[in-house]
Amino acid sequence: MSVLIDIQGLGKTFSDPSLRLGPRRPPVRAVDQVSFQILRGEALAIVGESGCGKSTLGRLLLQLIEPSEGKVIFEGKDLNKTTKAEMRQLRRKMQMVFQDPFGSLSPRRKVVDIIAEPMDSFGMTKSRKERREKVAELLTLVGLPSSYMDRKPRQFSGGQRQRIGIARAISVDPMFIVADEPVSALDVSIQAQIINLMQDLQEKKGFSFLFIAHDLAVVRHIADRVAVMYLGRIVEMGTKEQIYAAPHHPYTEALLSAAPQPDPTATRDRIILKGDVPSPSNVPSGCAFRTRCPLAADICRDERPSLREIEPHRTVACHFAAPRPISHRRAMA
């Protein structure tokens, strides 16, 4: 598979924009020196807790936010160097599915207008009739009756709205879709529907997929590769099999072990991390995870661990990287 997007040293710092006198809020380091590649047709999951910069990263890739440093190279083209008009044309190739199924659909517009919006932007709809036919096709594809197209979003449930948002994203046949926590606002019994739908659509259409989530269990089914983020940095990245079988970074291990599993018989040696995630405006020196890490040593304070490739497709940023099989997995096997 060839590379679709090459991300090189990407970073974003948000600073207090106000002009007022007196102390400013310290700048927030949301994304810090992130580099990786997304291959054509692959599903990559970014997993991390709130404030780890995963949503910012997704928006940086789509140039919805301008990076402070680093490059996003999409099909060989550096997105920072595109003009506004060029960028707008490039959006046809990259679309987004949002977390909030209620807020991300304009409440005053009909479903047909919402779904056709990207097509309209790129002049892909010749006539009214053709436009309605295309929308009907898309609605069927995402599992909604096409007769619903003249309704307003408020008449739909959260899961149905998320289907509408997905139909909008795939309407222009993009090569790349960023899905920002697309199921975390949905009811439990609806999440599986949406995950399956996105998986099916990806198989059918072959787009590359960046799936952002706070929960490793959700991405288990959809991702080919998983990247774990902590305080703006990628701490571990590998194929799904590698990550779930034996994480190498103690944070990945803790994330896996902390997720509550619907099985009361599983015996667990839970790793419960102490303390809170530090503020991204005040990231600890050296390894950002060291303040909560059970393995932390002096070197972790003095030296920031770089992402090292420890086996093919597998990188870890930890001075003490080593396989850490998950205990409850053994108990349940």
Binding site: Q191, A192, I195, H221, Y244, Q261, P262, H328
Partner: peptide, 15 residues
């Protein structure tokens, strides 16, 4: 239908 860490099904069951 709940996704878990250790299942290897290709598709999730859906209601």
């Amino acid at each position: 239908s709940v996704p878990t860490l250790n299942d290897t099904r290709k598709r999730l069951y859906q209601i």
